[in-house]
Structure formats: structure tokens, C-alpha cells
Measured scan of single mutants.
Amino acid sequence: GEDLPLPPGWSVDWTMRGRKYYIDHNTNTTHWSHPLESGPSSG
């Protein structure tokens, strides 16, 4: 998808195989999909 801006506290990194993933430092979790690309989340 597009390179959307990341929310505060997020960063992007790549695996050893070159796969892009996103790090949420607020909750110390990692995600394969961009936080703003996922569907609407409630709460």
C-alpha cells in the first residue's frame, strides 16, 4: 500500500528475510500490516 505516516510511538523495521513489519513501542507489539491500513477498530 501507500507509505502512510506512522502514529506516535511506532517504527518500521525489516526481518532478516527483508520483510517489512511495524513496531508499536506503546504496547511493545509487532504487526505485519500498517496500523492505519487495517480496518476501523473500536476502542
Rank of each mutant, 00 (worst) to 15 (best):
20 K>D: 02
1 G>L: 12
19 R>W: 11
10 W>E: 01
15 T>V: 02
43 G>N: 12
18 G>T: 00
23 I>G: 00
3 D>C: 06
42 S>G: 13
6 L>K: 05
8 P>A: 10
32 W>Q: 04
7 P>I: 01
40 P>H: 12
39 G>V: 12
40 P>M: 14
10 W>M: 01
9 G>A: 02
26 N>V: 07
9 G>Y: 05
25 H>N: 07
15 T>W: 03
40 P>Q: 12
37 E>M: 14
13 D>G: 15
36 L>P: 05
15 T>E: 04
12 V>T: 07
26 N>A: 07
11 S>Y: 04
2 E>W: 10
35 P>A: 02
11 S>Q: 07
37 E>G: 11
1 G>C: 14
43 G>W: 11
23 I>Q: 03
2 E>G: 10
25 H>D: 04
5 P>A: 10
28 N>R: 08
14 W>L: 07
23 I>Y: 08
22 Y>K: 00
22 Y>A: 00
40 P>W: 11
8 P>S: 08
13 D>R: 11
21 Y>Q: 03
5 P>M: 09
42 S>V: 13
20 K>E: 05
6 L>N: 01
30 T>M: 13
36 L>W: 09
17 R>C: 15
41 S>A: 13
1 G>R: 12
27 T>Q: 05
37 E>R: 11
6 L>S: 01
21 Y>T: 01
2 E>M: 11
2 E>K: 10
21 Y>D: 01
22 Y>N: 01
19 R>P: 04
29 T>R: 06
17 R>Q: 15
15 T>I: 03
6 L>H: 01
16 M>G: 13
18 G>K: 04
36 L>H: 07
38 S>D: 10
12 V>F: 10
30 T>H: 11
33 S>L: 13
31 H>F: 07
22 Y>F: 08
40 P>L: 12
13 D>V: 08
10 W>N: 00
28 N>F: 05
3 D>Q: 10
27 T>W: 03
22 Y>S: 00
14 W>E: 07
34 H>A: 05
40 P>A: 12
41 S>T: 13
21 Y>P: 00
38 S>I: 12
11 S>D: 06
16 M>T: 15
15 T>D: 15
13 D>Q: 14
4 L>Y: 09
35 P>R: 02
11 S>F: 05
8 P>D: 10
42 S>H: 14
31 H>M: 05
1 G>M: 11
31 H>P: 00
1 G>E: 13
42 S>W: 13
10 W>K: 00
29 T>E: 06
41 S>M: 11
15 T>S: 07
18 G>R: 03
36 L>S: 09
32 W>P: 02
12 V>L: 06
1 G>K: 12
29 T>S: 07
20 K>N: 01
20 K>G: 02
16 M>R: 14
22 Y>E: 00
4 L>N: 08
23 I>K: 06
31 H>E: 01
13 D>S: 12
21 Y>K: 05
23 I>T: 08
30 T>D: 04
26 N>D: 04
32 W>D: 05
40 P>K: 11
